[in-house]
């Protein structure tokens, strides 16, 4: 059962002695439903990863970083949660994120979706859906509403951030341009 796009799984493991880019590894790519599950069933769930690790699943050819030309002017819908929420919600929300990515749940806006990232961190874990520059706010909000519905989250739990704001922030938190 072919997927609409070919996807790549990336793994990031924080090693402070190396450059950020060197800690990011392309694991593999897949483009069928069967290969997706073969991979998913074979790797650790996010809740089993150590702090400082990330998984990223992006359309093949797009690197999971702000610097990629497809990401540069885009943004992300972000859900973040404290450690208490981790064991009940993290793995479920990551799987739902992957299913809406590979199933292309965003209809005509699916083309604008670049990928998704889960960050395992000491204070708060994060899951984000990344998208390229959008032609309208309505398109950004459409993706956010569909995504929130996929995750089955209550109101005001996901926020949209522009990558350029995140990339240039100093110590201040990144503002949410929209909250759903």
């Amino acid at each position: 059962h072919p997927l609409n796009s070919r996807w790549a799984l990336w793994f990031f493991k924080n090693d402070r002695s190396r450059a950020w880019r060197d800690n990011l590894q392309l694991v593999t790519t897949f483009d069928t439903v069967e290969d997706f599950w073969a991979l998913y069933n074979h790797i650790q769930l996010p809740s089993k990863l150590s702090s400082g690790c990330d998984y990223a699943v992006f359309k093949d050819g797009i690197q999971p970083m702000w610097e990629d030309s497809r990401n540069k002017k885009g943004g992300r819908w972000l859900v973040s949660f404290s450690r208490q929420g981790r064991y009940s919600e993290l793995d479920r929300l990551w799987l739902e994120t992957l299913l809406c990515l590979i199933g292309e749940s965003f209809e005509e806006q699916s083309r604008a979706v670049c990928g998704a990232v889960v960050n395992i961190r000491t204070k708060r874990d994060k899951i984000a859906l990344w998208m390229r520059e959008m032609e309208s706010q309505a398109a950004v909000l459409h993706i956010g509403r569909v995504y929130k519905e996929c995750l089955d989250l209550p109101t005001k739990t996901i926020g949209y951030q522009v990558h350029a704001d995140a990339a240039t922030r100093s110590n201040s938190p990144v503002k949410h341009k929209f909250v759903l």
Partner: peptide, 20 residues
């Protein structure tokens, strides 16, 4: 055409043996 799959369809394949 564009291939869209809903979550139930995708989940049906999770534990399906690869060669059938």
């Amino acid at each position: 055409g564009k291939k869209q799959y809903d979550r139930e369809f995708l989940l049906d394949f999770q534990f399906m043996p690869a060669c059938i």
